[in-house]
Design a protein around this nucleic acid. Structure first.
Lengths: 228, 228
DNA sequence: CTACCAAAATGATTTTAACTCATTTAAACT
DNA sequence: AGTTTAAATGAGTTAAAATCATTTTGGTAG
């Protein structure tokens, strides 16, 4: 069995395993989970249908492996994309750009995640590992005093990834490419700093009055939130 | 045929149609799309298996109908939940509360949406109809001068719904109930933030720092039930 | 080199569930 | 009551996932 190969060189077994995974990713991305036949995947991997089931319990399990590998690689890429010495805001921008870019480029694989989630538990770990990249950036920001002590990192994580994923969907739907203004606007919303965003609205002298307006509305709202 | 009933009373046909839909929603929510057998749904609707296919082309189509109906009802509920005369911020809070509550309560049905989206086009319309509730609130805010002219409504829509959906997932994952602080935090970063969100602010450093400091104190006031 | 054995691979067969369709039942109209 | 058309049925067909008895491969030893 592949799990405990005693007489075989581990390398060859793993090579075949990842060749099946490559084929599966390709076919799944192409045809979607339902549209992909295990026999197609087997053929694409130059392997008999039964062999697939030697490496993966079933089709769902194979999908979970594909998706898991994707998120693991995404974590590695994210860590590489972030400058360790940059300020929190810069790091968030780097992660935001990297994330939006990646999920736009590999939209089909990301979509497959939703097919894997409800069933398998294993792949959740890999997604969890990925979002920790965000948590580490934020925690460091707090530790350094760049962010308030009481920053609700968990909630901001949902703002960050939720916004980016929905934005990516919108961009895809409209056939638009990567849009840096999405990341910039998100950051300005999250961290409070603002920067001129490329594609978005230009002009409008802003600043003091708008900032004051924002603060007023926030404070006013805070007063009314006493109930809940 | 159900589409053009000449001799039948429309009412009876529609009653059966919605009884199949009810059964489908129940079984789908219970077992998920793959886990649900059409024969189970037929039995739950007290109908023969073939009858289901008289009303819906296939299982996917049936799912699309279930999901479509859900979003249509959600739209009606949202419109009822919003006070027409309230200020923009209040209306957003009403919509936010209603939305988060609804998707928490009917989490399984919401999850099914992802299974319907890629294939069918029809249900997209119903989702689009729903998000227009948000757009109308925002547009009215702009028209009234409560929000800046250049407010990027489309992007804020992704912030709003993306954040709420991811927050709902987090709450479900941790077995937590509805948490009003999620909505309040979301609003505090969205409302009046259009200066930043529009990307129009040309980065006045002092203003930003000032805003940061104020936000810090506000965040301390916000007894966020934030985790992490 | 040959014999041997276990791991790995194979693909024909089984199983399962979506979908079809010839037939029956019910309803509407005359 | 008889005729016609709509609606419903469920046994039968089909397709694809999963299984498993058999074959092939590759390493080891005599």
């Amino acid at each position: 069995m592949p799990a405990t190969p005693r007489h075989t060189s581990r390398a060859r077994v793993e090579a075949k395993e990842s060749s099946i995974l490559d084929a599966a990713e390709k076919i799944f991305a192409q045809a979607g989970f339902d549209g992909a036949k295990v026999s197609d995947i087997a053929r694409a991997a130059s392997v008999a249908e039964g062999t697939v089931y030697l490496y993966y319990k079933n089709k769902q399990d194979l999908l979970a492996a594909v998706v898991g590998r994707f998120w693991t690689q995404l974590t590695l890429g994210a860590e590489a994309a972030i400058h360790p010495d940059a300020a929190t805001r810069e790091q968030l921008e780097q992660l935001g750009r990297y994330h939006l870019n990646s999920i736009l480029e590999q939209f089909e694989v990301v979509s497959l995640t939703y097919r894997a989630r409800p069933q398998q538990e294993q792949d959740r770990d890999q997604v969890r590992e990925y979002v920790r990249v965000f948590d580490r950036i934020m925690q460091r920001g707090v530790d350094r005093g760049e962010l308030p002590k009481l920053t609700p990192i968990g909630q901001l994580r949902d703002v960050f990834f939720g916004t980016l994923e929905f934005s990516a969907r919108t961009l895809k739907l409209r056939g638009r490419p990567y849009d840096h203004s999405v990341v910039m606007n998100l950051l300005s919303i999250m961290v409070g700093s603002s920067d001129a965003a490329s594609g978005a609205a230009k002009g409008k002298e802003p600043s003091n009055r708008d900032l004051m307006n924002r603060l007023k509305s926030i404070q006013k709202q805070l007063k009314t939130s006493g109930d809940s």
